[in-house]
Each structure stands twice: as structure tokens, then as C-alpha cells.
Amino acid sequence: MAQEGYNPHILGFFCHWCCYAAADAAGVSRYQYPPNIRVIRVMCTGRIDGRFLLEAFKVGADGVFTGG
């Protein structure tokens, strides 16, 4: 079902200390990665609740990526 040029809306929950910093480092070192992820920074992955994840799908995200 994948359409040509289809850009999924993906929500990312990134831990401030791990994945967010990794994303920052990736940017600084000019790695290329897809721009589909909209990032929400959380202070710790443990802060994330099942409600956040379901809410994301409720408002129409095609996928949710959680990075700790």
C-alpha cells in the first residue's frame, strides 16, 4: 500500500540525555536521516505514559518512535 513519495507523520519522544543528544550529535556530524519525525523532548523516557502514545495515534500520527 506504500505510495510513491508518501511521507508518514511520525512522532518522536526523545529522552533529553540520550536520544535527543544523539540526534543533536547526528546533526552536528552531518549524518543524513529522514525528516519525518516530529520530536517531543522529555526529560526521561520513564516520563512517557501509555496515554501519550495512544493520544498520538488518536490525533493522526502514522507511527510513534520512542528513543531512550
Binding site: 500500500m1 508518514p8 540520550c18 549524518y31 519525518n36 507511527g63 520512542t66
Partner: peptide, 29 residues
């Protein structure tokens, strides 16, 4: 459509790999 992965602050290449992989799998869905 949901994924939970770990990448430390020093693992930018791994992070790029994870994000690219996940975006591609959602695209395929």
C-alpha cells in the same frame, strides 16, 4: 507503528540507523 529503542548520546550513527529503519517500516505500512 510503535517502537521503543535505545541510543546513547554518543551513538549518533546508531540513532540515524534506528530512525531511518523505523521511518522505512512505517512507509511500508
Amino acid at each position: 507503528r510503535f517502537s521503543l529503542e535505545w541510543a546513547s548520546a554518543a551513538e549518533a550513527p546508531r540513532f540515524v540507523e534506528l530512525v531511518t529503519g523505523f521511518v522505512n517500516s512505517v512507509k511500508a505500512l
